[in-house]
Simulated scan of single mutants.
Amino acid sequence: MRCHAFQLPSEVYRELEAQILEALASASLEQLGYLLADHDLEIELLSGEWRVLFEVSEDIAYQVVDLNERRTRMAVSPDELAEFVEMLRDPERQRAWTPISFGLAELVDALPQGMDLVGLVVVEEDDDWLWSESTHEIIAIRPEVYALIEPHMRQLVEIGDYGALARLAGDHSEGAIEFSNERWFQLGQGIVQHAPELIPVIEATLSPPGVYTSIREALSRVADPRTQPSLDAWLRVHSGGHQYGLFFRDIRREVE
């Protein structure tokens, strides 16, 4: 799940502030859209970007977060903006966020520093992404990216939202191996026969970069180019670039 950040001129935000704060708690996206119609900038934040942003700004901004309802909303008033922007522009934080910073970098550049010229409202995207075609995957995530988003991925595992987990991992992946249903089941059979140590790894869904080498070696034992050409090709061409964190996506877990 991604979010959209809306920048509103301060006079617009101040006029609508009470309605905006009330609407963030329970209003539909359509209702919020009417309130935010006079925004002068909209920026999409990827699944990991808004999560790290919300995490560090919870003491500054008004937030409404309900992961079970997939509701993630935040408002920063013009009076709070200077502190918010100073926090975002912290050089150490900027360096830490660089591996996942796309929309965030645009947002940091756009917000005025040391001024109260705008207000900011962040809301979750609509649920159209839930209806896109999905497939079984092994998703590779660079170690520096995995370190940033791992707590949020594990939080989604805990609440059982594997659809949002796939969105988060996919937004920040280095690459992915896709499997048809038939080849995913063949992979499972091959693992049982030739690499049983992978069974608890796949059941756990996530594996950290520290165990990547052993997992890669085990996967190579079931990567028959006749039955698993995509896995075989990835292991030969791409697998040695980094000590990847892996997400094993079984779409049967994503049934709503």
Rank of each mutant, 00 (worst) to 15 (best):
R2C: 10
H4K: 14
A5S: 13
S10A: 15
E11I: 09
E11C: 05
Y13C: 02
E15P: 02
E17T: 03
I20Q: 01
L21E: 06
A23E: 07
S26T: 00
A27D: 10
S28Y: 09
S28Q: 11
L29K: 00
L36F: 11
H39V: 08
D40I: 15
E44V: 15
L45W: 02
S47K: 12
L53S: 08
E55L: 09
V56P: 00
I60C: 10
V64N: 10
D66H: 00
R70T: 03
T72N: 06
R73D: 05
M74D: 06
V76C: 05
S77Q: 03
D79G: 08
D79R: 06
D79V: 07
F84Y: 14
L88G: 14
P91S: 14
R93G: 01
G103A: 07
G103P: 06
L107R: 01
P112Y: 06
M115L: 12
M115D: 10
M115F: 11
L117R: 10
V118W: 07
V122G: 04
V123K: 06
E124N: 13
D127L: 15
D127E: 05
W129L: 03
S132Y: 09
S132H: 01
S134K: 14
H136M: 07
P143F: 00
P143I: 00
E144C: 12
Y146S: 04
I149W: 12
E150W: 03
E158S: 10
Y162E: 11
Y162A: 10
A166T: 04
L168Q: 15
L168R: 08
L168G: 03
A169T: 10
G170D: 04
G175C: 08
R183M: 01
G190H: 08
Q193Y: 01
P196D: 10
E197Y: 06
V201S: 07
S207P: 13
P209E: 00
G210R: 06
T213L: 14
S214H: 01
I215V: 04
E217H: 00
D224I: 11
D232P: 00
S239A: 14
G245A: 14
L246P: 05
L246D: 09
R249A: 09
D250I: 03
E254L: 05
